Structure formats: C-alpha cells, structure tokens
Computed example of a mutant assay.
Amino acid sequence: MKPASFLNAHLGMLLWAVLIAASFFAAAQVSQAVDPLLLTGLRLLLSALMFVPSLWLNGAFQITRAGLRAHAVLGLLLAVYFASLFEALRHTSAVNTGILFALVPLLTLLFEGVLLSGSPAKNRLLPMLLAAAGAMLLTFRGGGAEGMPSLYALSVYGVGCLAMACYSPLSQRLKATSLKDRSPAAMTFWNMLFGALFLFAFCLPGGGWRSAALLTLEDGLWLLYLALFATLATFWLLHRAIGVIAPATVISYIYLSTLFITLFHWFGLGRQPLPSELLGALLVGLGMLALILGSRRPVPVPG
C-alpha cells in the first residue's frame, strides 16, 4: 500500500478529529445498561472483522510469532486505556477524565523521546501546551467546579493515559522491527482484535458479559455505526498518519475534536459561547496551527 503523503496524512487526521467528536454523540445512544467494556470490545471486534476480506485477498494474514507478540502488546495498551477510563468514570466525572486526557499528547511527546531517536520535542512543546490549555477550558464549559477526582480514580485513569500515550510511539518503533512493512489495515486489524480479546477477558471476573442479553436491535445498529466510523476509520487514519507525522502531533488532533464538539454546541444547539470557551477555542486553534505548520516527517527509529 502506498504511504500517505504529508498533506494527506494531516487531512486524514482532520477527518479523524471530526469522527471522534461525532462518536461521543453516537455512543450516548447505546443503552447504558450494557457493560461499557463489553460494548467497546464488541466495537473493536466488529471493526477488526470488517478488514478480513481485504486482508484475505491481499494475503496479509501471514505473520510471525514476534509480530503476534507485538500486536498483543499494542492491543493490551488499548484495552488497559478503555478499562481504566470506564473504571475511573465510576468514581469521578467525565469532565475530570476529559481534563486528564488533555495530558495524553504531552505524555506521548515524552514517550517519543524515550522510544524514538531524534524526535524534535522542544519545537512542539509550547504549541501543545497552548492547545492543551485551550482544550481544558473547553472541557470545563463553564459548568463550575467538578471537585477533585479521588486518588483512586486519578491513579487508575493515569495508568490508562500512560498506556494510550505509549501506543503511537511504540507502534512506530515496532514498525521498524517486528512489524516492518505492515500496512495501516493490517496494523488496525491485529491491534483491534487483540484489544477486543483483552476487553472480553476483563469482562469475565465481574460478569459484565451477561449484559449482552440487554442489547436491542437499535443498540446493534448504533454499535455497527460506531464500529465502522468511530473505530475502524479512526484507527486506520491514525496508523496511516503514524510514521508520516510525529506520533505526539498525530494524537494532538484530539484537541480539535474537543473544539469541534464545542462548535457543535454553539452553532448546532444554539448555546451562547462563554468568554472562557472563546479563549479556549483560540488557544486550541493557535496551538494546532503551530503544530501543523512546524510538523515534519519523523526521523527513523533505531532498529
């Protein structure tokens, strides 16, 4: 598969930000009685299965044991992130988790320095700090204090944020060794397949798998939508961009998702923007513009 061009990678990530923003509204339509770990596992599994015909026709199922181990590690990182998020949401608010998630691109920048050679972190730190500050202002939405999260919730979700921050740089490093020449479709398929299996395993001790009986036809249709657009498409776009754009810059597009959600509330729902939100939107816009203009192809990683 021909690698994405530099411009196409950025355009793809812009679409990624839109799809991520839309996924929050779609996910709210699925029954809240169903275990969220099970739902996420089903989303990942459905998305992975959609790649089977393409990979089968292209003979891309051949993989070494080292490749399987690498995909298992990446899939475990995904599962740990989602499991930590849903566990933290039992003990704190979505606002607090949203603020913590704003730190993920900055943590990704840290992992770049550890896992990849010659990553120009200093040039991107200030723009990312601006965008992160803006995203935090947008996440608050003037709703007042949510209260500090408990130490337990902070610790649990902190582990998940570290797992998600490690995902992109580790993917790029492994693509230089045990996952060399793997296409974005193959990377997406195997990582989501292992992620789904780990999430299903996490459902077993608490009996969350039993909630599958509560799924309705409408839930199934929303799950299909989420699997196709919010999971399959976004993971493919993510892996398409990794290696063309530095991983921390790639994941920083999550700040644009926060901005798009806010813009929808302003123009779609007619909500009056608050001064803090206007400042947040400006910071996100300036930070992301600086990141995009200053981005370049990442340097080769060590073998």
Rank of each mutant, 00 (worst) to 15 (best):
P3Y: 09
A9G: 13
L11G: 04
G12L: 08
L14H: 04
A27N: 14
A27C: 06
D35M: 06
L37G: 07
L46W: 06
A48M: 07
L49V: 07
S54R: 12
L55F: 13
N58V: 00
G59R: 08
T64D: 12
R65H: 14
L68Q: 08
L68N: 10
R69L: 14
V73P: 02
L76M: 13
T92D: 03
T92H: 10
S93M: 04
S93A: 04
I99D: 01
L107E: 12
L110A: 15
F111M: 13
L116H: 08
A121Q: 15
L126N: 02
A132F: 12
L137N: 03
L138D: 00
A145M: 13
G147T: 08
M148F: 15
S150K: 07
Y152P: 05
S155P: 00
Y157W: 08
A163W: 11
R173C: 00
K175H: 14
S178M: 05
P184M: 02
T188C: 09
T188N: 07
F189Q: 01
W190P: 10
E218L: 13
D219T: 12
A230G: 15
G243W: 10
V250W: 00
V250D: 01
S252C: 07
A290E: 04
G294Q: 09
R296G: 15
P298T: 06
P298H: 00
